[in-house]
Design a protein around this nucleic acid. Structure first.
Lengths: 339, 339
DNA sequence: AAGCCGAGTGAACAAACGTGCAAGGATGGC
DNA sequence: GCCATCCTTGCACGTTTGTTCACTCGGCTT
């Protein structure tokens, strides 16, 4: 049999495109023609195992895209309501109510990572905050080829004795790899000890360059912090803040933060002293980004989320179902628990 | 456990949207969150089997869309070449060379059916020919909701003693169902016996109405017939044509047909007498459709395909790999076999 | 040159999945 | 109101798929 006639391409040493070719072909046969992996293995002259791996590769590398279309007459009542009430595009992630907070975060992050591709494109500057939500997302990104894009770190990460969270550089690198984008690190602590140090730093040319990038951001991606919730965001565990800081926040009425910048329930930030030591962008800067994506999981963050919405920080919200339901159910109630 | 709290929607008798809701949720959990069907069954309070069926339903009904993206630097050399040489957008379907013609047709039709959704939209008139290729496609259509669209039959089907091919009405209905479109049948034989009958019929108001529709077509979908190939298109098996007809076609240099209208290798149709009895649209009418999708499988149809390309009938081509390769390999050779 | 390392392969096993089947429940016609 | 019929459900089975493991094969180091 003239087996080599089947694939008359030159067998160059270009092994990587060769793998991509095979993966693409396998994906065609599997997803478009419904062949079994066995049959595909036969067509590609390899083993079933390899086909299984090829398909995994095809999915993980974005060769295969799976998207869901709700029929237009059934557009998730909750998403619709969030859109109307807050003027924010919502993606509600179904998660059972009894799931643990860790599960919940993982599942929201996984879904968010897969949705993210829709927001990312070439020639964009993408700002990324640093936190456990972003960390979880970074592990599941689906690559998408872009040109001339840039990832810029929104807030410092300090030299954390990080609680299992990957280092900021690693996190940024993952985003950069996934989208073929340059990465701009922001090597500062999450909070300065002295506001003066921050001001001095901000005058440095290298810092200015980064801040300029932040001002020209096309997409911002962040979670919300919730300092007084039972399961505090990791920013509050890494030893970044002292007891006195919490007391200050509490006294000044802060309910949450976005990229280390704190706000009150009504979205205001004026007079929150900790912000003078924070490294994240001022909200006036953040709001210049036309697309501001917020990923939230867990009802503990409800009050924070409300504040971020009040501050107008969010244009697109990715949130677990329980939190979404709570958000629309009890419109203006105090952070007391429902039911 | 407050199980009913998990899904606080009213348990109305709206069973169909209920099923769609579940299917959508299951699809979310399966495709976006990588849960196993077991886990999903648990979340939905049902059995694994049901989840499997829900997911099948979600795929078959277009709730889930799976698409493949070749990396831009590797855009199927063949498709690229077809685009350059014939100015036609190509989708090449990988099929092993040793596949039987039946397999080949099935696999191309399956892929074509899944691609078709991209071409169909609301407020469109979609013309559809009648043949074994269309028949195979009709069994695998992925529904897509559209408004105010219309399916119009391009050529008559006669009262075939159809060889396992579904009746034209059934075929049209499937397309109509899949896209929520009205269906306009064309109840005439594939070929009239007497050209005069055709002319008379064409003057009828009911016929005119249909021809008008054909002239305003947005999308045309058809295969090509290949009268002199080893495995003749079913049009030639149904007893539509007599020996004398074939001899006439042969004498007049016909190499293929689109919707019962025959053409020569150079795309010309003038002086092919059988066309006076054909029921399909004149090519000048067909070419008014901005999008003209042709589905071809099997090298036996290569000469026909070349002719249809020469006639400028095609804007988008869906073709099996072997045929595509033959198309670009031997550019201007006579219909003699290669190798 | 020998040897170490990492990537890739196929066999084998376990997990996950699809489907025929029989039972239960709803629907619609009479 | 009752029965025939169709649709749906969960189970059980066989098939299909993911993953672990031992192995091979280049490439690169010592």
């Amino acid at each position: 049999m003239n087996e080599q006639a089947v694939i008359p391409i030159e067998d160059g040493t270009e092994s990587v495109p060769g793998k991509t070719r095979d993966a693409l072909r396998a994906a065609h046969l599997y997803y478009m023609q419904d062949l079994t992996m066995d049959a595909i293995a036969h067509e590609l002259h390899t083993s079933r195992s390899s086909v299984s791996r090829l398909l995994s590769h095809a999915r993980a590398s974005g060769l295969v895209e799976i998207s869901l279309h709700s029929p237009l007459d059934l557009p998730s009542r909750i998403e619709q309501e969030i859109l109307e009430r807050f003027a924010v595009g919502a993606h509600v992630i179904p998660v059972p109510d009894h799931a643990s907070d860790v599960d919940r975060l993982d599942r929201v992050a996984l879904s968010a990572a897969r949705i993210l591709g829709r927001f990312v494109d070439s020639n964009q500057t993408i700002g990324i905050a640093w936190g456990s939500t972003m960390s979880a997302m970074s592990r599941h990104l689906v690559p998408k080829a872009t040109h001339n894009s840039e990832i810029v770190q929104l807030n410092g990460a300090g030299n954390g004795r990080t609680t299992g969270i990957v280092y900021a550089s690693e996190l940024l690198r993952r985003f950069g790899d996934a989208f073929g984008a340059r990465v701009q690190q922001f090597p500062v602590p999450a909070f300065f000890d002295d506001p003066e140090t921050r001001r001095a730093f901000w005058r440095e040319r290298s810092t200015r360059r980064l801040l300029d990038l932040q001002e020209r951001m096309d997409v911002a991606l962040f979670g919300v912090g919730s300092p007084f919730a039972e399961v505090p965001s990791h920013v509050y565990q890494g030893g970044y803040l002292e007891r006195a800081d919490y007391e200050g926040l509490s006294r000044e009425g802060a309910v949450g933060d976005v990229a280390t910048v704190f706000y009150r329930a009504d979205g205001s930030t004026d007079g929150i002293t900790l912000n003078e030591r924070a490294t994240g962008p001022d909200f006036s800067v953040l709001r210049r980004a036309p697309r501001r994506i917020c990923v939230v999981s867990g009802r503990a963050k409800l009050a924070s989320l409300r504040g971020a919405l009040a501050a107008g920080l969010i244009t697109d919200l990715i949130v677990d179902e329980g939190t979404a339901r709570a958000l629309v159910e009890s419109p203006h109630e105090s952070p007391r628990d429902r039911e």
